[in-house]
């Protein structure tokens, strides 16, 4: 239990580090914040007006004071106001997040459903032709960037079948589940392919390691049939690295799949950050990055919890 408690204790610390890193990074952006915020319209302001604005946003105060102010607001759930949207940052984020979450979950489901059985199959047929085919497939899958895979899907669909993936207005899940799924299935496949390749590779090598363990030999010596050895004795041990890899990938996906959202014109978190960076909406960048890092850390914590559930040694060692 101790590891978990330590992790929990470190949680606010790392979050504080993340927030200050984001804060400092934003202040390091060249040019003054008002110009950055208003873009071309800044030229229309007189220096006095600029100063007034700076005072209004608290930008004339020293960094430490600004940081303190920002942190205090943060504790109250106030991430500031987005200039481009004219809405509170948190509201904008929460509007975009369901899509990102759904996409991430869908991709992970695809990855695990394909990856774990494929990895186990490859490991139990190691060095045979089926293993070779799976390994080559996984290797190519892992070497294909999501934007290449996405483009290929779009190209094949449009050139081969004359269909274009449903882009345009996004339908929320609860409004029309079928239409929603229709919009998300291709991006989820795009993301899930590389993810599945990673899961296959790690599941295969973990399974191979576990199959050479002494306790697997013991199980065989007791007359446990091959299938029982694989699924009941080996797999629970081999899942531990699979959980690690899946957790990391899932955490990254929760940060928004910038490129795939861009490619399929999906209004998710990732594209929002990209737009915010390009449009210099710094309150939004700051808030979203913090939100994403927070999610990532929560996922890591869940991964740790899964370890404890999977491995009694961790439970005891703490």
């Amino acid at each position: 239990m101790n590891t978990l408690i330590r992790r929990l204790a470190a949680f606010p610390l790392v979050l504080l580090g993340v927030s200050s890193l984001v804060f400092v990074a934003i202040r390091l952006v060249p040019g003054d914040a008002i110009t950055a915020m208003l873009g071309t319209q800044a030229g229309l302001l007189t220096p006095a007006q600029k100063a007034a604005l700076a005072a209004y946003f608290g930008l004339d105060r020293p960094w430490i004071a600004q940081y303190w102010h920002w942190l205090r607001a943060l504790l109250h759930g106030d991430l500031g106001i987005s200039v481009t949207y004219g809405k509170p940052v948190l509201e904008v984020i929460l509007q975009r997040f369901p899509l990102t979450l759904e996409l991430a979950l869908l991709s992970m489901a695809i990855a695990l459903v394909i990856g774990v059985p494929a990895g186990v199959y490859a490991a139990t047929h190691a060095e045979r032709r089926s293993d070779l085919v799976l390994r080559i497939g996984a290797m190519i899958g892992q070497s294909t960037p999501s934007f290449v895979f996405g483009l290929v899907i779009i190209y094949v669909l449009s050139a081969g079948f004359g269909v274009l993936p449903a882009m345009g207005t996004f339908t929320p899940l609860l409004k029309d589940p079928l239409a929603n799924l229709g919009q998300l299935i291709l991006p989820a496949l795009t993301l899930g392919a590389a993810f599945a390749a990673a899961v296959t590779r790690i599941a295969r090598s973990a399974m191979l390691d576990v199959l050479s363990e002494d306790y697997v030999r013991t199980a065989r010596s007791r007359g446990v049939p091959a299938r029982g050895v694989i699924w009941r004795h080996a797999l629970p041990n081999a899942l531990i690295p699979v959980v690690t890899v899946s957790g990391i990938e899932f955490g990254y996906l929760l940060g928004g799949a910038v490129i795939v959202e861009q490619l399929f014109a999906l209004p998710g978190l990732g594209r929002m950050v990209l737009d915010a960076i390009l449009q210099r909406d710094y309150a939004l960048v700051q808030g979203t990055v913090l939100f994403i890092a927070f999610n990532f850390m929560v996922v890591n914590l869940l991964v740790d919890l899964t370890y404890v559930w999977l491995d009694p040694r961790i439970r005891a060692r703490g």
């Binding site: 363990e213 002494d214 306790y215 030999r217 013991t218 199980a219 010596s221 004795h233 629970p236 041990n237 999977l310 491995d311 009694p312 040694r313």
Partner: peptide, 13 residues
């Protein structure tokens, strides 16, 4: 059959 290393011969989970 029983083996040399009792610690590694039993499934840890």
């Amino acid at each position: 059959m029983i083996f040399q290393e009792p610690m590694s011969s039993l499934n840890p989970v």
